[in-house]
């Protein structure tokens, strides 16, 4: 047999248990959220935690299984390419997830809010709240009792600017680490990669303090109308992705320390790097369209 065979794994228990864990997570989250107002979400919380615990164990086990298969040399170059296609399309799906929220932001800014304020072709909507004036950031909402607008919004030229610099630098540091990996300069990769992790953590810390400032000092909350809604959904989901990305960076750093990667076989490393660049690019979009303009 001269040609390489494509590795088709034997039966596996991971997926079905992952489905059960996902079900527990989803059902628990539903029950918890539905019980929030009546304080009856305890069963939900229990199910959610059980699901989260089970899912973490499965993810650790499943990834360990795949890593061991990879180290045993079971994946041919063709299988490697399958992983690459898989990761690229996964990142594309993540981009489309953010597209939904960016689309919502552009729609309310350029159409919905001006119409409510009496501008443009559908300005007749102004009859709903007469005297409401369109502005962006929307500090005075049409119904200030139900949705009290924020007193002010985050100044883009302080923390957000620093965060932009941090994330862009981290894209450079991870690229330097990747080059060091390919050149087999072990101490350089550990240093540059470690620096990337640190930058990710600092970013998250700043993001958290920005949220605290928004809630405690600016009155910018989820309830403060469409500005708060779009602000928190975009930065919130981005923050979640940075958290996930930082976790992935840490895991991959441990794998570097353990010597799992060689200059020509390190797809796991590249996948994490791609993911990190993706959260970086999304942040640039956020900085421009949520904070600056």
């Amino acid at each position: 047999m001269s040609h390489e065979t494509y590795y088709v794994p034997a039966q596996s228990r991971w997926p079905i248990f992952a489905s059960i864990a996902l079900f527990l997570l989803a059902y628990g989250a539903g029950t918890l959220i539905n019980g929030l107002k009546t304080q009856t979400g305890d069963t939900g919380l229990l199910l959610l935690l059980a699901g989260a615990f089970m899912m973490s164990l499965i993810l650790i086990g499943w990834f360990r299984h795949v890593i061991n298969e990879g180290m045993d040399g079971k994946f041919s170059p063709q299988a490697d390419l399958s992983f690459r296609w898989g990761m690229s399309w996964f990142i594309f799906s993540e981009i489309m997830f953010f597209v939904a929220f960016f689309g919502a932001l552009f729609y309310v800014r350029t159409l919905a809010v001006p119409w409510l304020g009496g501008e443009g072709e559908k300005g007749v909507s102004n009859m709903l709240w007469q005297g409401f004036e369109a502005q962006w950031p929307l500090l005075t909402t049409p119904d200030m009792e139900q949705f009290p607008g924020a007193r002010a919004v985050i100044d883009p030229w302080h923390l957000p600017l620093i965060n932009t610099a941090i994330l862009i630098s981290s894209s450079f540091t991870i690229t330097l680490a990747h080059h060091a990996l390919k050149a087999e300069r072990r101490s350089a990769i550990i240093l540059w990669h470690g620096l990337t992790v640190v930058l990710g953590v600092i970013f998250l810390f700043f993001q958290a303090s920005e949220y605290i400032e928004a809630y405690q000092e600016l009155g910018l909350t989820l309830e403060s109308g469409i500005y708060g809604a779009t602000f928190f959904i975009l930065t919130g989901f981005h923050g979640l992705h940075v958290t996930l990305g930082t976790l992935m960076l840490i895991i991959i750093w441990i794998r570097v320390l353990k010597g799992h990667f060689t200059p020509d076989s390190h797809f796991g490393y590249e996948a994490v790097a791609w993911y990190w660049h993706f959260v970086d690019v999304v942040w640039v979009g956020l900085f421009l369209f949520v904070y600056v303009f």
Binding site: L36, L111, Q146, F147, L222, G225, I226, T230, I233
Partner: peptide, 25 residues
């Protein structure tokens, strides 16, 4: 996934994506 997430936020977490009273639509 994005649109049902916005629904979830509107129902349970006080956002106003689909509520004109908060500037949404």
């Amino acid at each position: 996934a994005g649109v049902v997430t916005m629904m979830l936020m509107d129902i349970h977490f006080g956002t106003s994506f689909f509520n004109a009273a908060g500037g949404g639509d």
